[in-house]
């Protein structure tokens, strides 16, 4: 199994080298930015598994992060912190498996709006549970230090990137791409479409569950409106569309770009930042549907025979 440098090795290297270098700057600010960046990389890579490869575009991926965060909060104090985070990931994965059975039968744009509705539904359910429990936002004191969280998040980003590289090379990846290109044809050629979609959906929920738990540990409090904020889903989609969601490279490029932009603008001009995101999203959908990654490919191959997706 040989790695294609630009598609596979480059994103892995970017994440690994980035993770090792940021702490050398010796400043908590950079650790914080790195933590956020790697969180987004992990989220966007997970999203790519189901939405990039299988073409089932999820506009509600925040739901898995929210569930991961909430399970961490619910198990807070009862089990060790890291175990709580793992419970969050497993919970998110099981949730995906459970709702995936009906939800993954819904195709195309209906799936897209359904995922959004599902995330909002989960948000309001959690809000109501919390208000029944009499909690309106929870403080979590005594969480791990930023440095520890940083390394965990960097590892998650690496795992996420690696998972896209690996899945693309498996039969699973080829099957998912076939489903994206034409689900009916894929089925007739022997691709077990429903099973593959479910596996992809569940896989794509695991890391976000952990990432959500890390976000909660970092801020030290949990508030459903924030943990299930649709802007998180929107940002994931925008990253993947700007970067490209054909391989592991796109999400890394997209995440770096948006995190830099957000560092520049978010704290002072949040609305300007969001407007720019909207404009970028529209621009890329219209003019460069394969993202920066696709533009790179186009530059690289000048011949008429355009490359396919490079299945191995």
């Amino acid at each position: 199994m040989s790695l294609n440098f630009s598609r596979d090795a480059l994103p892995l290297l970017l994440v690994a080298v980035g993770a090792l270098c940021l702490p050398l700057l010796g400043n908590d600010y950079y650790l914080g930015v790195g933590f956020t960046l790697f969180g987004w990389v992990a989220l966007a890579q997970s999203w790519t598994l189901v939405s990039g490869l299988a073409g089932y575009i999820s506009l509600g991926h925040v739901v898995f992060a929210g569930i991961g965060g909430y399970l961490l909060v619910l198990t807070w104090g009862a089990v060790p912190i890291w175990l709580g985070a793992i419970v969050g990931a497993v919970g998110a994965g099981l949730f995906a498996l459970l709702v995936g059975l009906p939800v993954m039968r819904v195709r195309g744009p209906y799936f897209v709006i359904l995922t959004f509705g599902l995330a909002e539904f989960a948000k309001y359910v959690v809000i109501n549970i919390e208000s029944v429990l009499g909690k309106f936002s929870r403080l979590l004191l005594g969480g791990p230090a930023l440095q520890d969280l940083y390394w965990v998040m960097a590892a998650l980003a690496l795992v996420g990137t690696f998972s896209v590289v690996v899945v693309r090379r498996l039969r699973l990846g080829a099957g998912l791409i076939a489903i994206r290109e034409d689900e009916t044809a894929a089925g007739t050629l022997g691709v077990p479409t429903m099973r593959f979609k479910l596996i992809a959906f569940a896989l794509s929920a695991l890391l976000p569950g952990l990432v959500g738990a890390m976000f909660v540990l970092r801020t030290g409090y949990f508030e459903p409106l924030q943990a299930f904020d649709p802007i998180i889903s929107f940002t994931i989609v925008t990253m993947a569309i700007i970067g490209g969601s054909e391989d592991a490279r796109g999400p890394v490029l997209g995440a770096i770009f948006l995190v830099l932009l957000s560092e520049l603008l978010w704290s002072n001009f949040p609305q300007v930042y969001m407007v720019i995101l909207g404009v970028l999203l529209i621009g890329f959908v219209l003019f460069a549907p394969n993202g920066v990654s696709g533009l790179l490919d186009r530059l690289a191959s000048r011949s008429l025979q355009r490359p396919g997706v490079g299945l191995v």
Binding site: I57, G108, V112, F234, I241, P289
Partner: peptide, 15 residues
């Protein structure tokens, strides 16, 4: 068209 329009309108909505 359906998928693109959804994403474009999503962008418009945010804007």
């Amino acid at each position: 068209i359906e998928a693109n329009s959804l994403l474009i309108f999503f962008g418009i909505s945010i804007i």
